[in-house]
Write a protein that binds this DNA or RNA. Sequence first.
RNA 1: UGGGGUGUGGCCAAGUGGUUAAGGCACCGGAUUUUGAUUCCGGCAUUCGAAGGUUCGAAUCCUUCCACCCCAGCCA
Length: 569
Amino acid sequence: MSKSGLKNLKPAPKHFIRSIAENEIKNGKHDSVYTRFPPEPNGYLHLGHAKSICLNFGLAEDMSGRCNLRFDDTNPEKESTEYMESIRASVEWLGYEWDHLCYASDYFDELYDFAVELINKGLAYVDDLDAEQMREYRGTLTEAGRNSPSRERAIKENLALFERMRAGEFAAGQYVLRAKIDMSSPNIVMRDPILYRIRFAEHYRAGDKWCIYPMYDFTHCISDAVEGITHSLCTLEFQDNRELYDWILANITIKENHVGERGKALPRQIEFGRSNLEYSIASKRKLIQLVNEGFVDGWDDPRLTTLDGLKRRGYTPASIRNFCAEIGITKKDSTIEMTVLENAIRHDLEASAKRVFGVLKPLKVVLTNYPEGETEQIEVRNHPKDESMGVRAITFSRELYIDHDDFMLDPPAKFFRLGPGREVRLRYGYAITCDEVIRNEAGDVVELRCSYDPESAKGKTADGRKIKGIIHWVSAEDAVNAEVRQYDRLFNVPNPGASDDFAQELNPDSLVIFENAKLEPSILAADIHDRFQFERVGYFCFDAKDHSERKPVLNRTVSLRDTWANINK
RNA sequence: UGGGGUGUGGCCAAGUGGUUAAGGCACCGGAUUUUGAUUCCGGCAUUCGAAGGUUCGAAUCCUUCCACCCCAGCCA
């Protein structure tokens, strides 16, 4: 068990970053590892972030190191307190504890001073090229760029101009501060990157104190260094930025840090590959589109693989951590099959979910030879293997509900369920035989008249005959009505959003609502956070938003594995 | 076509010159089972992007080639 107290956690896998870190501890480069998870508070977290969280916090946890949660909040136009708080809650939900809660925006003052240091060293200058000109001067992938006319501006003048940028004397876009590196570098990131831009925007934390904001490349490495971070882990697309990361740290003087101790050595950026989940999207832009155009219920729609969505769907923190452990950390981008995620939650819930009976599509069954008005209480276990989960009583009576899917008018031989003249066992109850099928004018099956075998309790039959089929049921008398939402993958193509119009890629059956589900009454006594296995059906949880005792609403987290369905494909 | 990366079974992923190339997911058998669940047992890469080379020995070293990903925001 980890210090977070989560159960059923798999041991942390070994990967190349851990090897690097272990070597650097061994050879004395660092005393201990110090990582950070650095989201920009401009949206909600999804599974891709979970991978990074588990990597950063997990590495620190496994190596007795530390990890900060740091908001990389240098772009006031996109960020908000709401996002920041949601992200913080998601990290906590996963069960991790940060060493320090940090904000890049807390470093604005020192960042400014470091920029001045670079100007003083002749390594940064104020430029007045506009965006379009700058693009022209930058060159292309195959052609070198050209020096800006402002590149040789005197240090004194740069200092004055930068000060005036800060004072708000110029319009947005009029000036930028640039590093003076190499306009002909084959690495485009190094062609005099912009360090500061003018933005007259209210920052969700800094308010209107600033009208110039530092860029990611300038901010991130300094934030890492100032926090004493040893390993700065990020995704592959930042590989080109590493050269700039190192350049900036090599050219400024970090005297001390203010959280944690000063690292012996500068932080090292290491990149790892992103993981994409089949049949889902992680792109912020597309997520916004799904929400705004009403394809889903919101950022926490249970079909979304945002952490809030997965939480509402019924995924546990342990299952998500185990999923991240399962997919590994490498230097290549990967596409993960949905079954890996499903396996992770099934594995967790198989061990921990209470078993109950729930009928999604009720079909009434009347046991014609069972005495009217009589009932029996049957004691059943809450878990087939874990006795500590206790027992409960369910009611058996003359009128029951079974699931419509457990009956076929003309079933194939291998259908181990009910059909005209067929016999099945009601789980924990008696064997019943279907004598009569009642249909309405439209021809729909609306009720079954069956007879029960009074000698068939306790799983045995008097004559020793074997009954292959076992189905679940609830007593009509005390069944609880509930709305059950059956979720499935949101898209019907493995790589949605490849084209820009993904509306046609949506799975029309991603949400099927059963308004009249019948559940055994014990469900009402359960805790709101409990998870259930509806035997033979799947795993379910209460919907955090819409559930009430008056009107129970449950979400299907995931179905049980279903080899019968596979056979029928 | 400049620079930076990556290529091991359907999907992930160990492997860092030396017996039959870990493990998970998926799939296929079979056993147990009052959940067609779970559990169990068995199967599933003569081969590691390709071709050459070095070596007694190569997925691991060298050469060439091929494929794919990222970079030309005053986003992160």
